[in-house]
Simulated assay, not measured.
Amino acid sequence: MELSAWITPAIVAALIAGLVNVAGWFVTYQRERRLETARREEKVRDYITALRAEIRCHNFRWSETEAVEHLAAIAARIEGNPSYTPFVPRDAGNKIYDAIVNEIHLLPAEAIDAVVRYYAQTHSVAEMVEDLRSETYDRLDAARKTAIYRDYISLRTEAGRLASEAEDALNNWRGAS
């Protein structure tokens, strides 16, 4: 039996159809990968834009110059009137960070550290605010109140510095807009 007897037009057609099918799978896979990559980059850009906005909003309120002047004024008021307790409002929170924290791994590696350190600091500031709003703080003597308030301002100032670092890290991403 000759080899040409086995190679009939039907077998050739089946081989060609198989090759076309495999090529189609390959092309479809490549297209899906490109679309998935584009969607991921768009999501990362959106996260970075939102985080930058939230961090910038916080950083605007936490400038070091304002903090030094503010601390001097509050310390003078506490020392002048030991029963005075400064009102410390709660911050709005970290709504954007809290919404995307489970997908923080999508951010550029160089930005994750700076962003996480910043938000850990904002958590410390929020905890300090709760202490400053407590009755225990209200009953402290003037020197202790001033020292604790100084610590609060120091935490806020550090948060401002970390916010600047986080903004820089987010701005330096290749896809940042």
Rank of each mutant, 00 (worst) to 15 (best):
S83K: 09
I104N: 06
L170Q: 01
E36T: 00
T37L: 09
E36C: 06
V115N: 07
E64S: 15
V20L: 14
H70V: 01
A114M: 03
A114R: 04
E2C: 07
E2G: 08
R39Y: 03
T136R: 11
Y84I: 07
Y84C: 14
Q121C: 04
V88F: 02
D151C: 04
A114P: 08
D151R: 14
S164V: 09
M1E: 05
A23R: 04
Y149D: 02
L19K: 05
S134C: 03
R117H: 10
Q121K: 14
W62S: 07
S124Q: 02
S83W: 00
L19D: 08
Y118N: 12
D98V: 09
N94G: 10
G24L: 13
I78E: 05
A169T: 00
Y152D: 08
R133A: 00
W6S: 01
N94H: 15
A142V: 03
Y97F: 11
L140F: 12
W62E: 14
I74F: 08
T122Y: 06
S164A: 09
A92D: 15
E41V: 09
R39D: 00
E127Q: 13
Y119H: 02
A109V: 06
R39W: 04
L155I: 12
S177F: 14
P9G: 10
H123L: 11
E36R: 15
I96P: 01
R61E: 05
E66H: 12
G80F: 01
P82L: 11
L15D: 10
V101I: 15
Y137C: 01
A99E: 06
E103F: 01
S177Q: 12
R45E: 10
I55S: 02
A14Q: 01
V116E: 09
R33F: 06
R133C: 03
T37V: 14
A114F: 08
N59F: 04
S154R: 07
